[in-house]
């Protein structure tokens, strides 16, 4: 192979890639926060014994589990505006797609954590005279959180990688910026190698932070 590697042109536009990385982190962070809120609401609905709360949440979750993520991006960007007669910018559409997707998966993570707590824990607290809400707050949720951490982190990594789909809506994330730089420099090998490494550094850094958090939350196990 006598290809002459030259990162010069790409590094010359590194400011564009850095902006893309920043936007990727921003959209991921916002979507994780909103996704957690969506997930909490859905999880509470799923844990309820009332069918009119339970069934819609189940349908929502199953819908997201059984459709490709890119369809959600297109639906929020192209379909929802038609339905509501509004226009959505790529950022908002992508955040909506990412946070509802992750919310559907987080809901199962949260619910799974709660139902994994043994019956004996409920009974131990109840036998002391604790109310349902005190039991939840003091006994069940603290233990459930420790069990939720690993699957939660895994889902958040999925989300971080899925942010690349926002580029299909022309949102200026890392992948989209790379396409722009490529169009200017005609250096696909260097451009896409560079951003692959940037994604790698981002995810490895995030996983180190996640491991720290995990160790703190599961110290007693």
């Amino acid at each position: 192979m006598d290809y002459a590697w030259d990162f010069g042109p790409v590094l010359g536009r590194f400011d564009m890639l850095a902006l893309g990385l920043l936007n990727t982190v921003k959209i991921a962070a916002v979507s994780i926060v909103l996704g957690v809120l969506v997930g909490l609401v859905l999880a509470m609905m799923r844990l309820s014994s009332r069918r009119w709360l339970n069934v819609p949440a189940l349908v929502f979750i199953e819908f997201y589990r059984n459709t490709p993520p890119i369809v959600h991006f297109f639906w929020f960007f192209y379909a929802l505006p038609v339905m509501l007669a509004i226009s959505l910018n790529p950022y908002v559409a992508a955040v909506l797609a990412l946070s509802t997707q992750s919310g559907a998966f987080y809901a199962e993570v949260f619910r799974g954590g709660i139902v994994s707590i043994e019956r004996g824990q409920w009974e131990g607290g109840r036998a002391l005279g604790m109310t349902h809400s005190a039991l939840m707050r003091r006994i069940i949720i603290p233990q459930a959180i420790a069990r939720m951490v690993p699957p939660f982190i895994e889902r958040s990594f999925e989300l971080l990688k899925t942010t690349a789909l926002a580029s299909t809506l022309a949102y200026a994330d890392l992948l989209y910026q790379a396409m722009m730089v490529n169009a200017e420099t005609f250096r696909p090998l260097e451009v896409y190698t560079t951003i692959a490494l940037m994604y790698l550094v981002l995810l490895v850094t995030a996983s180190q932070l996640a491991r720290l958090a995990e160790n703190r939350l599961t110290a007693y196990q």
């Binding site: 004996g120 824990q121 009974e123 131990g124 607290g125 036998a127 006994i139 603290p142 233990q143 420790a146 007693y220 196990q221």
Partner: peptide
């Protein structure tokens, strides 16, 4: 009414 269980049911956290 205090209760003591076969499986202790202590709070592990």
């Amino acid at each position: 009414l205090g209760m003591v269980f076969q499986q202790f049911n202590l709070f592990p956290h």
